[in-house]
């Protein structure tokens, strides 16, 4: 019997890399032999505007091409979005929300109005500053998502991301190392 399809929604602000995170995640998951989809939502294209992107992961070929309404996982790259965007829309009682924040899971859960057991927190901005050198939280959140999903191999994700980043930043090895370190740290540090 095939596993249920996993659906993921990313919330970020223009420039934070929500789209890139969804693409990197999809490519990394593909290397584990699963079928994937990654698609951004296109709206006002400016720095700072709230943006969303999506992933589907399945053991079977994915033919559905509609929006994701009931995501199993929601990733919030910018905690200020909690006040301005309905980030928990369609998240049911087993849905999981992963937030880039310095607050505790309990504090964030109260703010979101969902159970604390559903909330995972990681200070991805801090990790990004310390590893990559700037506040770009998308790659560390990738590590956090892999941890929370639990069925994906972090080493496979790291390897694939290394290949992808090497193609893009072959003249900046520090960027590659920084990003990989950020994924690993967020994987280790995300808590419930």
């Amino acid at each position: 019997m095939a596993e249920k399809m996993i659906e993921v929604r990313w919330h970020g602000r223009g420039g934070q890399g929500a789209k890139t995170a969804a693409l990197l995640f999809a490519e990394a998951v593909l290397t584990t032999g699963k079928y994937i989809q990654a698609f951004p939502e296109y709206g006002p294209e400016r720095m700072g505007a709230p943006v969303r992107s999506f992933n589907r992961v399945s053991e079977e070929p994915i033919t559905i091409h509609s929006d994701i309404i009931n995501p199993e996982y929601v990733i919030i790259l910018d905690p200020s979005l909690i006040d301005s965007v309905p980030v928990t829309d369609g998240v049911d009682r087993v849905g999981k929300v992963i937030v880039n924040t310095s607050f505790s899971a309990l504090d964030v859960a109260q703010k979101l109005g969902i159970f604390a057991s559903q909330v995972y927190v990681v200070n991805a901005s801090k990790i990004a500053v310390e590893t990559i050198g700037s506040d770009i939280p998308n790659t560390p959140m990738l590590g956090a998502l892999v941890k929370v999903i639990g069925t994906l191999d972090i080493n496979g994700v790291l390897e694939d991301t290394k290949v992808k980043l090497t193609a893009k930043f072959r003249h900046k090895p520090e960027v590659i190392e920084g990003n990989l370190a950020s994924i690993k740290r967020a994987f280790d540090e995300v808590t419930n």
Partner: peptide, 12 residues
């Protein structure tokens, strides 16, 4: 292809 739905959707 259908705009964005396929043109911008990463798939296998």
């Amino acid at each position: 292809t259908d705009g964005f739905i396929i043109s911008h959707c990463m798939e296998v």
